[in-house]
């Protein structure tokens, strides 16, 4: 936020809500790309003309610094409404964070079946905000890395493995209530029905990974690379048997395998709704791919559903040898806006 005026923030959210409604319906923003006064720049930037809505979804979030900035200043009169769980994430081992890829007062996640439609949404929302907000960082992803519905087959991350097999699915109503949505219990306040968005830019050391023997890769993950079955056997959706004995007096799923370290059984049953994507931002100075997983998870409480899992992964997971976390952010995602409402209306009510 460039502005420190509450009315300006609310006005921006109203304008964003309107534009998001138009674009998710497959319409151009404002008066459109080609129907306006020829003496004016078009309201809509035009690159999504002739394209369908492409399943576009737009999600907004509020970062901790929106409530209290770096100096602790309450710029918008909402400091007393900052949820307890909305704090800067702690430092995790292996975090090499780039401040220019981390944090933020506000966030927008735009997802679509066509990247051109998603980028169009972000571009137009950023344009609407000029003067009130400025872009701190952005990340383009491709090829979702988690299934979010039982109707989807599990896609692969850039390690070549199926990712998100055990993700919370849209069809799992009870699990969504338990793990994803902030309930309407006391203390939830304006965030009741909302969620938290954890964003982590996880860089993979692709070239080193590619030189690992197949058997080692599968041991690091705890699943086969082909079908995604746990090393304890069965099919992709078979529950892993962490106690099954393997060769050399070790369990067949190694003690530092990713699937074991982050499994809900190791964390009191907590699960996440992941909506992550692969990314490739060209190559780095050494000619390696600047690539990895843009991890995005929705949880009802990052303190219980994300931090302990990430900490265990940073400390004990064999995969971390091939990962560097280069960006990190946490946002509170307000509940969906009803007809006539703007995004985040409950926060300013």
């Amino acid at each position: 936020m460039l502005a420190d005026d509450r009315a300006e923030l609310v006005d921006l959210l109203e304008r964003w809500t309107l534009a998001a409604e138009q674009m998710t319906a497959g319409q151009p923003a404002g008066t459109g790309a080609v129907d306006g006064d020829v003496r004016l720049p078009p309201d809509d930037t035009g690159e999504a003309l002739d394209l369908p809505a492409s399943g576009l979804s737009i999600t907004f979030g509020f970062g901790p610094s929106l409530f209290r900035d770096g100096e602790g200043t309450d710029r918008f009169g909402i400091a007393d409404r900052q949820p307890d769980a909305l704090r800067e994430l702690p430092h995790f081992p292996g975090d090499i964070l780039d401040p220019a890829r981390s944090g933020g007062d506000l966030c927008i996640q735009a997802c679509a079946d066509d990247p051109q439609v998603a980028v169009h949404a972000v571009r137009n929302l950023a344009r609407i905000g000029f003067g009130t907000v400025s872009v701190r960082w952005s990340q383009l992803g491709f090829g979702r890395t988690s299934t979010t519905s039982t109707s989807q087959s599990t896609p692969r991350n850039l390690f070549g493995f199926k990712d998100g097999t055990a993700n919370v699915k849209a069809e799992e109503g009870a699990a969504l209530n338990e793990h994803v949505w902030v309930g309407d219990d006391a203390g939830a306040g304006w965030l009741a029905g909302g969620s938290y968005l954890v964003a982590r830019r996880i860089t993979m050391t692709i070239e080193v990974w590619d030189r690992q023997p197949l058997g080692d890769q599968e041991s690091f993950v705890g699943r086969t690379k082909g079908t995604g079955a746990p090393l304890s056997g069965g099919e992709e959706m078979t529950e892993p048997d962490f106690d099954m004995p393997g060769s050399n007096d070790q369990p067949v799923i190694p003690t530092d395998a990713h699937v074991r370290i982050v499994h809900p059984d190791a964390h009191g049953g907590v699960r996440m709704l992941r909506r992550g994507y692969n990314f490739v931002d060209g190559s780095n100075a050494l000619g390696g791919l600047d690539a990895g997983l843009f991890f995005i998870a929705y949880v009802r409480d990052p303190g219980t559903h994300f931090v302990p899992v990430q900490l265990a992964m940073s400390k004990n997971d064999a995969l971390t040898e091939y990962l560097k976390v280069t960006g990190s952010a946490l946002f509170a995602v307000p509940p969906g806006a009803g007809p006539g409402e703007h995004v985040g209306q409950s926060l300013f009510a």
């Binding site: 679509a112 905000g129 701190r136 992803g141």
Partner: peptide, 22 residues
């Protein structure tokens, strides 16, 4: 300088699995 834009796009391609027997 405080807004982050998270643009993610899913490219919907049919998975060409199971066309050839491994």
């Amino acid at each position: 300088m405080r807004m982050s834009l998270v643009a993610t796009a899913l490219v919907a391609l049919p998975l060409l699995a199971a066309c050839t027997q491994n």
